[in-house]
Nucleic acid binder design. Structure first.
Length: 1168
RNA sequence: GCCCGAGUGGCGGAACUGGUAUACGCGCACGACUUAAAAUCGUGUCUCGUAAGGGAUGUGGGUUCGAUUCCCACCUCGGGCACCA
């Protein structure tokens, strides 16, 4: 019986026919549903494991050999987990919306649905031929209406919570693809996809408020296990910076008095007028609040008469016209009265006017039809603070009023309704404006010598009218607008800007008046669009200040604290402060510098000394040079007001010193020199040191700063240090001073982010339609959830329109719908979602891919993600480096949002994230169809087999690094598998080879009990290999795992005998890499159940211990010989043995042994 | 410019926490088998040197008994960010 069986095998064996084997097992596995994950916890007691790869975009080019690398990697892990007893979910699907398919449709007119189907069929066939253990029963496709129904549904939840909104945006527009691009899709000012230069366009866009989650997206990275560089990428992109918002009050010397004119019904009813009056008076202004006649049924003409007669009106007056009072102001100006300015507070008070109709004051003004051209000439500025959005369309005869109103606003551009009308400080801030800046360096505010506004900052517009250099500013604004993104963001280019002349603000720290500039190096979209410029401590401000000759003030000075040696600061003593100078004296003849070298101890530095009471700094420096070196004629080159604070212990005076050394640069006029005192001579030597040698010469840290200063006269100190020129904050540590200074200037601590809200609409066809209906009456109305999905209609032409609308806009049948609210005429939104949408939640769908009631059943989510909010999610997610910022960030955002709605059980989607490197073409270039260097896995599978391809891809190099494909090297893994096959063949066919079975003897025992040496070594190696492979897989060190198995296979092949048990263990640890061949051999060895259902072997610690170890013998660190000793041999015995070795004796002959270093089980190093 | 990562044979790469540098694979050379070739197997393969020994992990320095590994400076390549106050 047994013989027959072996004979049968012998016939069957012969060569390794990968085609037969792989086909057979792939069918068998699918038939037995061996890789299908089981949902319900009750049915299986196994712990769950969710491993995930990024689902592919099924492009028309088909799979290339780079695609499967991550799939194989996670497959190895998933297969290992199954053997380790987990219920594994390893799913796949298609991320099939997107541009390439659409562009193909545009070119060929083919329906993207059909193209997608064809492409994904090809991808599926190719991936399946690799024997990856995906659960194909859970396959999903983002373009399937049953899938995108839920993408749309999630969007509606965003809409409901106010996190999806429409905004007019200047967007990046790719003129070739005719598509709006998100910031992250623009690379170097060009379209990420096609490389065309990006243009700017104004467009209404759907936005997702990802910035609301910025802080959590940043902070929660602490809880997840991502590779450090991935976390870093996320953090950089979010761009958190902590700082402060600080107000700089605007100075306007021409305003002396305010005239507050009541509104129609607003008797000093509330605290508003008294409050405003008090506030203004407290700032030193004259304020007049006349008691207006004709309350109740006001008449602006009558009131204007009254004001003209009783109040002071001149060029120093600003009229604050509240409601009806605003009309009175208009009347006055129309009569030819000149004032400095008018602020028209059009708060939401409506009432019955002279014409008997009810409307707000702005509406009333519009109806009156003033002579705006004349009015505008009477005042330097005319500011309308209005909330009267309701008055744009009148309740009664809307159209006419709207027209009039339009002309009113047209007359005063930049005054569109924007005012909330409620907050008193808001009113005040318009009367006495502040410019708000954001800074991360409030500690440097004493060095803020000017302010810079971004050209887009609204304050520039509103202020321009009264600027002395209005035309210059206008010109600059036009210029910057013309500049495209590339030139504007080019840091190399010289900074430009223009001063807002006549405008000064007060630095709230110094109370000095400082100028205000407009410059495009300040970005409107970040912070407040305004900065305080500190040229002394910011490179950009410094460049700008140099160019426009603005004052530079250094307020933070580096500090050096001596902590070692005899000059180390004594912790128990307080400091004695001194002003000191440091003279940098150059001899221009040979470009050397005057230095001193102390005789008593190793200290090399410059000429320094204390400043005496009342002494001038420069004189002090010259005096010190003269006293210490005798040089008489010095010429001051520069005194940059640069100093270093120095804390040390004065050895002579025996006290802690805190000295401030101010650096001054001198040139030697001539070399004339007096004798120096003997006393000085005793202390140090005078040396002239060449500039190149200074670096090595200085023993003190300040040397570094001096070199920076010498090499670069524009050196500015950017680091943390000690404050100076900062009044009461002098001598404080800059970091500590931040908070106190913010408080001192009345600022507010604030954290801001670089992250912008996500532009979520695309004017394209092949994406999920945004499920919103546009109704003239009701505005934006969400499609009711029961009407989802909003399916993409078929179109004839996929070309986007030139106006930038999606091709959907032309499908009138689809676009025109009834409003779900009022049943009136309405239009569908024609924008579609970006293809980040479907991939932001796909991993949730895998847990319950066929659910038609919810995006996934809660039970399934809880099972597969876990129920611990802080430590749950997909167990292991591997993907490409190119997706570690955007896709990861977006899906984390969606997940957190769903978590807040209690729709998912965890706070984070993925517990662990790793990346793989790309596989490049043989030349090291990226594989692409256009370059013609694509390697198709079909050919490799056909020639070498899927197992060989898998082993090769895992073996070729470190998993996380990019690597070039090599057609030559693939033969190595193939030979390895053939060797494995041969060993199996030998075991099956040669009873001699597999006869010796010491397995029962060694189980649980130590190697010492074993007598058969060959097997013994093999068993030792086997167990070491189990350990290594087990560990290496966890660290994704697949290449070294395979390398160790190659070694094992060589040893087994060479061995006189290998037991079935041992070989089967080898097959098990190899099976994640090469599942087909191992399954076949496993089966041939008589196993009835799949190797996939077996148990992952464990190594036996006792069996990997070496009996004998090699000790490396070094002499003076050089390898001389090696000896073998028993493991854990006593140190003395080893040393004794080493010293008897003839090689050793030869080397140490006649020399004295100074030291012997011993590292247990490793080496002996003899120092002679 | 800033921030990461990496530089090791002819090539892909290995080396634990500072302890034999070059594992494993490719290639190449030689040998065995063969009429022959392919395939396979075996042996060898950093470099100089007959040898003893010396020199090599991008370059230069440092710490150490001992450095691919730690520190400093520089060079090159790859990736990310790029006027983010």
């Amino acid at each position: 019986m047994a013989n027959n069986w072996i004979l049968g095998i012998m016939k069957y064996m012969k060569e390794y026919d990968h085609k037969k084997i792989e086909n057979k097992w792939q069918k068998e596995w699918e038939k037995k549903e061996i890789y299908h994950a089981k949902d319900q916890k009750g049915q299986n007691k196994k712990p769950k494991y969710y491993s995930l790869i990024e689902f592919p975009y099924p492009s028309g080019d088909g799979l290339h050999v780079g695609h499967p690398r991550p799939y194989i990697g996670m497959d190895v892990i998933s297969r290992k987990r199954r053997l380790q007893g987990y219920n594994v979910l390893y799913p796949i699907g298609w991320d099939a919306f997107g541009l390439p398919t659409e562009n193909f449709a545009i070119k060929t007119g083919k329906d993207p649905r059909i193209v997608t189907k064809k492409n994904s069929d090809t991808f599926r066939r190719q991936i399946q031929s690799l024997g990856i253990s995906f659960d194909w029963s859970r396959e999903i496709n983002t373009t399937d209406p049953r899938y995108y129904k839920w993408t749309q549904w999630i969007f509606l939840q965003f809409l409901k919570k106010g996190l999806a909104y429409k905004a007019k945006m200047t967007i990046n527009w790719c003129p070739k693809d005719k598509i709006g691009l998100a910031n992250e899709e623009v690379v170097d000012g060009c379209c990420e996809r096609c490389g065309t230069a990006v243009e700017k366009r104004e467009k209404e866009q759907w936005m997702l408020a990802i910035t609301k989650y910025a802080d959590r997206l940043h902070k929660d990275l602490d809880d997840v296990d991502y590779l450090p560089q991935i976390k870093l990428g996320q953090r950089n992109w979010i761009g958190k910076s902590e700082g402060a918002e600080i107000d700089f009050p605007v100075v306007n010397p021409r305003v002396k008095r305010f005239l507050i004119l009541h509104g129609r019904s607003s008797t000093p009813k509330d605290n508003f007028y008294p409050w405003l009056k008090m506030e203004l008076e407290s700032k030193g202004f004259k304020v007049e609040v006349p008691e207006m006649p004709g309350r109740g049924e006001p008449n602006d003409i009558e009131q204007a008469d009254f004001v003209e007669k009783n109040c002071t009106l001149n060029k120093e007056t600003v009229i604050v016209g509240h409601s009806m009072g605003g009309l009175v102001a208009l009347r006055l100006l129309e009569r030819g009265i000149k004032v400095h300015g008018v602020v028209f507070l059009a708060t939401p008070i409506t009432g019955r006017f002279l014409d008997g109709k009810v409307r707000s004051s702005v509406t009333a003004a519009a109806v009156r039809g003033f002579d705006y051209e004349k009015i505008k000439k009477q005042a330097d500025f005319f500011k309308i603070l209005s909330d009267s959005t309701d008055s744009v369309v009148s309740q009664e005869d809307g159209k006419i009023l709207a027209k009039n109103l339009g002309s009113f606003y047209q007359a005063f551009p930049g005054n569109e309704p924007h005012f909330s009308g409620k907050e008193e400080p808001e009113v005040l801030s318009y009367l006495l404006p502040n410019i708000k800046v954001f800074t991360t360096r409030p500690d440097t505010i004493f060095g803020a010598t000017y302010l810079v506004l971004a050209p887009e900052n609204p304050y520039v517009q509103s202020r321009m009218g009264i600027s002395e250099n209005k035309t210059e500013i206008e010109k600059y604004l036009i210029e910057t607008k013309k500049k495209d993104e590339i030139t504007r963001l080019n840091t190399e280019k010289e900074k430009t800007g223009v001063e807002l002349k006549g405008l000064k603000v007060i630095n709230p720290a110094t109370n000095e008046e400082i100028p205000v500039w407009v410059a495009d190096y300040v970005l409107a979209g970040y912070g407040t669009g305004a900065i305080m410029a500190v040229p002394g401590h910011d490179e950009r401000d410094f460049q700008f200040a140099k160019k426009y000759d603005l004052p530079i003030r250094r307020v933070v000075e580096p500090i050096q604290i001596v902590t070692e040696g005899e000059s180390a600061v004594k912790n128990d003593q307080s400091f004695v402060k001194r002003n000191a100078v440091c003279a940098v004296v150059r001899n221009p003849k040979d470009n050397t510098y005057l230095c001193s070298s102390w005789k008593a101890f190793k200290m090399n530095g410059l000429i320094t000394g204390g400043v005496e009471e009342g002494e001038d700094m420069i004189e002090a420096a010259k005096r010190e040079v003269y006293e210490e070196t005798g040089y008489k004629n010095l010429r001051l080159v520069t005194n940059p007001d640069f100093a270093i604070q120095n804390k040390f212990y004065h050895r002579v005076k025996k006290q802690n010193r805190w000295a401030r050394f101010q650096y001054m640069f001198f040139d030697l006029v001539d070399e004339s020199r007096d004798q120096i005192s003997e006393e000085e001579n005793q202390i140090h030597d005078i040396v002239w040191v060449k500039k190149e040698e200074l670096k090595n010469f200085f023993t003190v840290i300040e040397g570094q700063f001096i070199l920076d200063l010498i090499d670069n006269p524009n050196y500015i100190f950017l680091g943390r240090g000690i404050l100076h020129h900062s009044q009461k904050f002098d001598d404080m540590d800059s970091e500590q001073a931040k908070k106190e200074i913010i408080k001192f200037v009345g600022g507010k601590e604030k954290t801001i982010f670089k992250l912008r809200d996500w532009i979520f609409s695309r004017q394209r066809y092949w994406g999920e339609p945004i499920p919103v209906i546009n109704c003239q009456k009701c505005g934006l109305v969400p499609v009711s959830e029961k009407d989802l999905p909003v399916e993409l209609p078929k179109v004839k032409n996929y070309q986007p329109t030139d106006s930038g609308e999606s091709p959907l806009a032309n499908i009138t049948k689809w676009v025109n719908v009834k409003c779900p609210k009022c049943k009136g005429k309405a239009k569908r939104e024609t924008d579609t979602m970006p293809n980040w949408a479907g991939s932001s939640w796909y991993y949730l769908r895998y847990t319950d891919p066929k659910n038609s009631k919810a995006f996934a059943d809660n039970k399934n989510l809880k099972y597969w993600l876990g129920n611990d909010p802080r430590h749950g999610g997909v167990n292991w997610y591997n993907g490409g480096n190119e997706h570690t910022t955007l896709h990861l960030l977006y899906s984390r955002f969606w997940h957190k949002f769903l978590f807040d709605l209690k729709l998912v059980p965890t706070n984070e989607p993925y517990m662990k994230r790793t990346s793989h490197g790309l596989i490049l073409a043989e030349g090291g270039e990226k594989m692409s169809k256009s370059k013609g260097n694509v390697v198709n896995p079909d050919d490799i599978v056909k020639r070498y087999g899927a197992d060989t391809l898998r082993v090769y891809e895992m073996f070729m190099g470190p998993f996380d690094q990019a690597i070039a494909w090599s057609e030559e090297a693939i033969i190595g893994p193939r030979r390895f598998l053939e060797k494995v096959w041969r060993i199996g063949e030998k075991i099956l066919t040669s009873s001699n080879f597999s006869a010796l079975r010491p397995s029962l003897e060694y189980k649980g025992g130590t190697l010492g009990q074993l007598k058969i040496e060959r097997s013994l070594n093999l068993i030792n190696l086997l167990h070491k290999t189990i350990k290594k492979v087990t560990e290496d897989i966890e660290g994704m060190n697949f290449n070294t795992a395979i390398s160790s198995m190659m070694i094992l296979s060589t040893e087994m092949d060479k061995a006189e005998s290998v037991t079935r048990e041992d070989f089967k263990i080898f097959l098990q640890i190899l099976s994640p890499f090469a599942p087909h061949i191992t399954e076949e051999l496993w089966n041939m060895l008589g196993e009835k159940k799949s190797i996939n259902l077996s148990e992952w072997p464990k190594h036996d610690e006792n069996l990997i211990k070496d009996e004998e170890v090699k000790i490396v013998v070094q002499i003076n660190g050089k390898l001389r010989t090696e000896i073998f000793v028993k493991a854990n041999e006593n140190e003395e015995d080893v040393k004794r043995k080493v010293l008897k070795d003839e090689n050793v004796l030869r080397h140490i002959a006649g020399k004295e042994i100074k030291r012997v270093i011993y590292v247990k089980n490793r080496l002996v190093n003899i120092v002679i």
